[in-house]
């Protein structure tokens, strides 16, 4: 993957093939001779860079079915956090595939899918299978993030690249330690913390009964009076998650459904928070 430096730099490197240049690729890989002959931008590919297993872990628990900050121009899938997450996951998989990386998909919770776990493989057919799963997936159920992440962590291939897309709406203390399973496998984890800015801002303007799609009690709250206190709680929670992710070896990236998808993708690919 052009975005990744080989961990085996210095060893024997064999030329594999050419690949069309895509925006975001390292310009150092451009083959200027080919450009001179055919006016095409191609990048040389070497054997050592082709085999970076990539996996996307997607949380589609019931809570991700809420939210309404979908962006025009993208499949909003009911304008929910889940829609944004599915779109994000599909785009990431496609982009990784185009870069020749073998990809895998792990869906946590969710309903309507023929499979919830697809191992890391290359090939167009495998990608189409991933898309099939994503297209049929709907938010639902309870994630049980602690167990799910621990289980997936044990399954990923060593030294792989993993994107975890979740809203993290379970007690962080119950699932943050599970991220250590990825660290033990030497995985490079991108933690995409999914949230709807409207929910964090508690932007309802009248007293309503709030309930969780995953079940549990309802709460009658007047958002106008509770907004300030809720903001404090949100800030504390984000800090808690961010600190936990970093502590267990991951990179924290806030994934607001209110921001353009390409902006988030650029950050994910570059690894910049």
């Amino acid at each position: 993957m052009g975005g990744h430096r080989s961990r085996r730099v210095g060893q024997a490197i064999e030329f594999a093939d050419y690949q069309e240049y895509l925006p975001g690729m390292d310009l150092r890989g451009l083959d200027w001779r080919v450009w001179g002959r055919s006016d095409r931008y191609v990048v040389k590919r070497f054997e050592t860079e082709t085999e970076l297993p990539c996996a996307v872990v997607l949380d589609l628990s019931g809570d991700t079915g809420t939210g309404k900050a979908g962006l025009g121009g993208y499949p909003d899938l009911d304008r929910s956090k889940a829609g944004y997450a599915i779109t994000l996951a599909a785009t990431l998989l496609y982009w990784l595939h185009r870069h020749g990386e073998p990809v895998g998909l792990e869906v946590v919770a969710g309903t309507g899918m023929p499979f919830s776990s697809l191992p890391t493989r290359g090939g167009r057919n495998h990608l189409q299978l991933c898309f099939l799963v994503l297209a049929s997936a709907k938010a639902g159920g309870v994630a049980g993030l602690g167990d799910a992440l621990a289980r997936v962590g044990e399954r990923v291939r060593r030294r792989s690249w993993v994107a975890v897309i979740t809203d993290g709406m379970e007690e962080p203390s119950t699932w943050l330690p599970s991220l250590s399973a990825f660290a033990r496998r030497g995985a490079d984890v991108r933690f995409l913390h999914l949230f709807d800015p409207g929910e964090y801002a508690l932007d309802e303007d009248r007293p309503v009964l709030f309930y969780s799609p995953e079940g549990g009690d309802t709460l009658a709250v007047d958002p106008v009076g509770a907004r300030e206190a809720f903001g404090e709680v949100v800030a504390e929670y984000v800090d808690e998650v961010k600190g936990g992710v970093v502590r267990f070896g991951g990179r924290y990236l806030p994934a607001s459904t209110g921001q353009p998808l390409e902006t988030l993708l650029r950050r994910v690919i570059r690894g910049a928070a």
């Binding site: 309503v208 009964l209 309930y211």
Partner: peptide
């Protein structure tokens, strides 16, 4: 209040 709203951040 009578209106019910699904809320994804009930933890918070």
């Amino acid at each position: 209040p009578q209106d019910r709203v699904a809320f994804g951040a009930m933890l918070l």
